[in-house]
Simulated assay, not measured.
Amino acid sequence: MAKPNKKGPVTRVTITCSRCRAKLFYYRKGGKGALVKCFKERIVKDFTEVEGQCPGCQQIFARDCLIRGAPALKIIGGKVRAS
C-alpha cells in the first residue's frame, strides 16, 4: 500500500472536542468524507498535552496506530467535530 502524500491537501480544518468544544488541532484534510483518521504528518498545530486526550474535559478521542505504514490517530466515532 502507498503511503499518504507528504505535502498533502491544502484544506485546513479545525478539530474540536464534541463534548466541551475545546480546540484539539488544526489538520490538513483531504476529501469530503467523515474524519476517521488523522495522519500525524498532516497536523499543522496541536493543542493537546497528551496525545489522543482532550485538554479541556480529559476525554479520550483517538488511539495511536499505524495506517499504511505511517503514524496516525484513529478517531473514535462521535468524539470530535471538524469545521
Results as ranks from 00 to 15, higher is better:
L35T: 08
I76F: 08
C54E: 04
A34K: 12
R19D: 15
A82W: 07
K7F: 12
K3A: 14
R21T: 15
L35M: 07
I15F: 02
C65R: 09
K74Q: 06
V10F: 07
A72D: 01
S83H: 13
A72Q: 00
I76S: 05
V80E: 03
E51R: 08
K7W: 09
K37Q: 08
E41V: 07
A2F: 12
F61H: 07
R42N: 13
T48Y: 00
T48Q: 04
T48D: 01
G31C: 07
D64L: 06
C54T: 07
K74R: 03
F47M: 05
K7D: 14
C57S: 10
G33A: 12
V13D: 02
Q53F: 14
K37H: 09
A22Q: 15
V80N: 02
G78F: 04
R81K: 13
T16Q: 09
L73D: 04
T48W: 01
A72H: 00
T16E: 11
I67H: 14
F25E: 03
G30F: 07
K45V: 06
C17N: 05
Q58W: 09
P4D: 05
R68L: 12
S83R: 12
C17V: 03
T14A: 12
F61M: 06
Y27E: 07
S18E: 14
R81S: 10
G8L: 02
F61A: 06
F25Y: 15
R21V: 12
A82P: 03
K40H: 02
Y27S: 06
R12S: 09
I43K: 00
M1I: 11
A2V: 14
L73Q: 05
V10T: 13
F47T: 00
A70G: 00
P71M: 03
G69Q: 01
P4E: 06
Y26V: 15
P71L: 02
K79T: 15
P9G: 11
L66V: 09
G78H: 01
A22Y: 11
R12Y: 04
E41Y: 04
R12H: 06
P4W: 06
A70N: 02
T11Q: 12
K37N: 08
P55R: 01
D64F: 04
R21G: 08
Q53D: 06
E51Y: 00
P4V: 09
G30Y: 03
L24M: 06
K79Y: 08
R81H: 07
A82K: 12
R19M: 13
V36A: 11
Y27M: 04
Q53N: 10
G8H: 00
I75W: 01
Q53G: 05
K32H: 10
L24D: 07
V36S: 11
D46N: 13
P55E: 01
I76K: 04
S83Q: 14
K23Y: 09
E51A: 10
R19K: 15
K23D: 15
A2Y: 13
K74M: 05
C54N: 06
M1E: 12
D46I: 02
F39C: 02
N5T: 11
I43E: 00
K40R: 10
S83C: 12
P55G: 02
C57N: 11
C38G: 01
A62G: 09
I43D: 00
M1P: 10
I76P: 01
A34V: 11
F47I: 00
G31H: 06
I43P: 01
C17A: 05
C65L: 13
G56I: 05
I76R: 05
G56K: 09
C54M: 09
T11I: 11
D64H: 06
E51D: 08
G56M: 03
K7G: 11
Q58P: 02
Y27N: 04
